[in-house]
Design a binder for these strands. Structure first.
Length: 713
DNA sequence: TAAGGAGGTGGGTCACAACT
DNA sequence: AGTTGTGACCCACCTCCTTA
């Protein structure tokens, strides 16, 4: 299809366009006409759904070069490439909007109200589902839908907001229903209010209120202690306020006049008045620039987006810092942020229109604050930060994702309830604009999000290296069990995860990845490359000192528990426990790092622990190791193999049944599937998390010490 | 070099005012 | 009343910078 020919065909309009293109700039008017001509042509020839590919028409000279030649085809064509379909959808949407606007032009007046109601319903539905999630009761849903319609009415008609004093409205509703049933002669307004609060369905049919497009009337919103009244003009509002006042008086409650406010909107504009003078006092108008807080959201003629956002962000950050300054451990700090700080933002989800950028900004700020408090290494992976702990993440909730999920939840709620309530249905209709669709559930979205985030993390060349390697060796729940069970400080947690992410400042990293150094070898032993796994488990210079201490800490933790089991005296505090070479009483004998004299010559005869249970005639040979995470399984097999000779010798010499138990914990927290099974074989109660914690603390100490050393080169 | 963050760019949408 | 022009805003995408 040649665009130029097309323009020539369509007469004077086309000729003008051609002229303009050749002369220089195309005016917006002509550009639009241009698009209309092209789109009309395509839809005429290829139907409503087509694929179009836009190609530069290089054979033309001058200005025409930058304009387009379009290859259009019906969408069934298999040749349509990805690009083509992308373009097509773009064009299609363009065209759709064009046509829509044309058609809609006739209904301009309707559109205006549509837009108003669109926004209104959006906000309303959000609030609706929020309440609903809290109460999931009929009342809640009703109120919600009412709020929706209320919002819709806001722009088009006058509106006044009014809040009765808290307890008044609460008790009023209760008492009102009682009184109404008791006294048939009670005044009409009383009856009306009682209906409002006790029989929601009738309340909607009352005379007063703002009328929606769907013919329903709405005259108030009530949630707990917040009451809002709506009327189609000032008089109605006065009448409604009067109703509330009468009730308040009846039950001896006073109007909290200073907490009430009114707003009159005429033709979409706020009309400021002196306020409403009543015999009990004056209800003043909502002041310009100020707002009125309804259910925690600052509102004026509409939600005060900017103010709410700023306030929410400030409070969020304040709470975030508060949590991080606390003495909670890493896991609980994350939980506290999720349940104490984050809801400040998520409460506004669906009511306030957060942009993607704003939410990402909040996330960035969060990470910055975390880093400032030592809770996140600046080079650590951010996708991992937001993954659940059982997937290897740190269990923080991403603000953006949480808000998205919240909105999805609201949509889901409205979708399921729309059949039960005409007002909710109205909200749904506004939101979908007639396009029926099945919203995906919140749960499914969450699952999808976790999967995708995890995939991104795993695919990263550097950060994804650890999970890829370690998950080949052991199961996820064993590799990451330390994150949920050890109760480490958040700083230690950050250090360990940064080490797993290969994000620490090692010489190998500097040389091979940053290329700022030329010497990748270890600063201590100068033999191997200075990688994380080298520092944590393979450096010869550290073997006799730091590794030994880590190893002994772990072994002595086991020793202490064994001693407790056989009623030996132990220090009350674990870290003060100093194992003796030999402990013996009538129940058992415990050897610590003891070289066993054997008749036959053998290499491995000095295990970390030998426990001889005298009663059961069982000897347990325990050996502890903290290898690099990728070696745990191999190490475990090696240990068992290594002590087989000794086991047989012990059986023969001491006339007991002997077994070898390896306790292998990865330096960065991974463990094998067998760890729990092995621990059960050792007398006493041994918990894997305690051992993991001992290993990780030792390891964090090693990393800190090592990386703090001056670079020799 | 990997990753995150910041800023720029182009395209799209929307609201509003001016014009026809 | 309908059309057109304009600016604000948003978003996706890209590039560049920074940091380790």
């Amino acid at each position: 299809m040649n665009v130029r020919e097309l323009l020539v065909e369509c007469g004077s309009v086309g000729k003008d366009i051609i002229l303009e293109i050749e002369e220089g700039e195309l005016t917006r008017k002509s550009r639009m006409a241009f698009v209309r001509v092209v789109v009309a042509h395509i839809t005429k020839n290829f139907g409503d759904s087509y694929a179009a590919e836009v190609i530069k028409y290089t054979s033309l000279q001058g200005k025409w070069q930058s304009y387009l030649r379009i290859n259009a085809s019906a969408t069934t064509s298999k040749q349509a490439s990805k690009q083509a379909s992308k373009q097509a959808s773009k064009q299609a949407s363009k065209q759709a909007s064009k046509q829509a606007s044309k058609q809609a032009s006739k209904q301009a007046s309707k559109q205006a109200s549509k837009q108003a109601s669109k926004q209104a319903s959006k906000q309303a539905s959000k609030q609706a589902s929020k309440r609903a999630s809290e109460r999931a009761s009929e009342r809640a849903s009703e109120r919600a839908s009412e709020r929706a319609s209320e919002r819709a009415s806001e722009r088009a008609s006058e509106r006044a907001s009014e809040q009765a004093s808290k307890q008044a409205s609460k008790q009023a509703s209760k008492q009102a229903s009682k009184q109404a049933s008791k006294q048939a002669s009670s005044n009409a307004k009383q009856a009306e209010l009682s209906q409002m609060s006790s029989k929601p369905s009738k309340r909607r049919n009352s005379r007063q209120g703002y009328k929606l497009k769907s013919e329903q009337k709405i005259n108030h919103l009530l949630y707990m202690d917040d009451l809002k009244l709506y009327g189609k003009n000032e008089k109605e509002i006065e009448a409604l306020i009067n109703t509330v006042r009468i009730f308040s008086t009846d039950i001896s409650m006073e109007f909290g006049l200073d907490k009430c406010a009114r707003q009159i909107i005429q033709r979409g504009k706020v009309k400021l008045t002196e306020g409403l003078q009543m015999n009990i006092g004056k209800i003043s108008d909502v002041q310009l620039g100020e707002g009125y807080k309804y259910l925690g959201i600052l509102q004026n003629m509409e939600n005060m987006q900017k103010e709410v956002k700023t306030n929410a962000t400030i409070t969020y950050k304040k709470r975030l810092r508060q949590v991080l300054r606390s003495k909670l451990n890493g896991q609980f700090k994350m939980q506290a942020i999720n349940s104490y700080a984050l809801p400040v933002i998520t409460y506004t989800a669906g009511i306030i229109d957060w942009t993607k950028n704003e939410l990402e900004e909040v996330d960035r700020k969060t990470r910055k604050i975390l880093t400032m408090h030592g809770a996140l290494h600046p080079r650590a992976d951010i996708h991992r930060l937001y993954l659940p702990r059982n997937c290897g993440g740190r269990g923080l909730h991403e603000v953006r994702a949480t808000v998205d999920l919240e909105c999805a939840g609201i949509t889901e709620y409205i979708h399921t309830k729309k059949g039960e309530d005409p007002l909710i249905n109205a909200v749904w209709q506004h939101q979908t604009q007639g396009r029926e669709c099945e919203p995906s559930t919140r749960k499914a979205l969450k699952k999808k999000w976790v999967e995708e985030t995890r995939e991104v993390w795993m695919q990263k060349p550097l950060h994804g290296q650890y999970p890829r390697e370690v998950e080949e060796i052991t199961k996820k729940e064993h590799a990451y069990r330390w994150t949920a069970s050890t109760g480490l400080k958040i700083e230690t947690e950050a250090l360990i995860t940064a080490a797993q992410d290969q994000a620490l400042n090692t010489k190998y990293h500097k040389t091979k990845i940053l290329r700022v150094s030329t010497y990748p070898k270890c600063r201590m032993c100068k033999l191997s490359d200075e990688t994380i796994s080298h520092i944590t488990s393979a450096c010869q210079n550290l073997a006799g000192t730091l590794y030994l201490k880590r190893h002994n800490d772990l072994a002595s933790a086991i020793h202490r528990k064994v001693c407790q089991n056989y009623d030996f005296h132990v220090e009350p505090v674990p870290w003060q426990h100093k194992p003796n070479l030999v402990e013996e009483n009538d129940k058992a004998k415990i050897l610590w790092d003891f070289e066993i004299r054997t008749d036959r010559v053998m290499t491995a005869r000095r295990p970390d622990l030998v426990i001889i249970d005298k009663g059961n005639k069982i000897a347990t040979i325990v050996d502890v190791a903290v290898p690099s995470d990728t070696n745990i399984e191999r190490k475990e097999r090696e240990k068992i193999e290594k002590y087989q000779d000794l086991r047989l010798e012990v059986q023969r010499m001491w006339d007991v049944k002997a077994k070898v138990v390896p306790v292998v914990v990865g330096a960065l927290g991974a463990s094998t599937q067998n760890l729990d099974k092995h621990l059960e074989e050792i007398p006493g109660i041994h918990k894997a998390p305690d051992l993991l914690k001992a290993a990780l603390l030792g390891n964090a100490h090693i990393l800190q010490r090592f990386l703090d050393l001056p670079d020799s080169r």
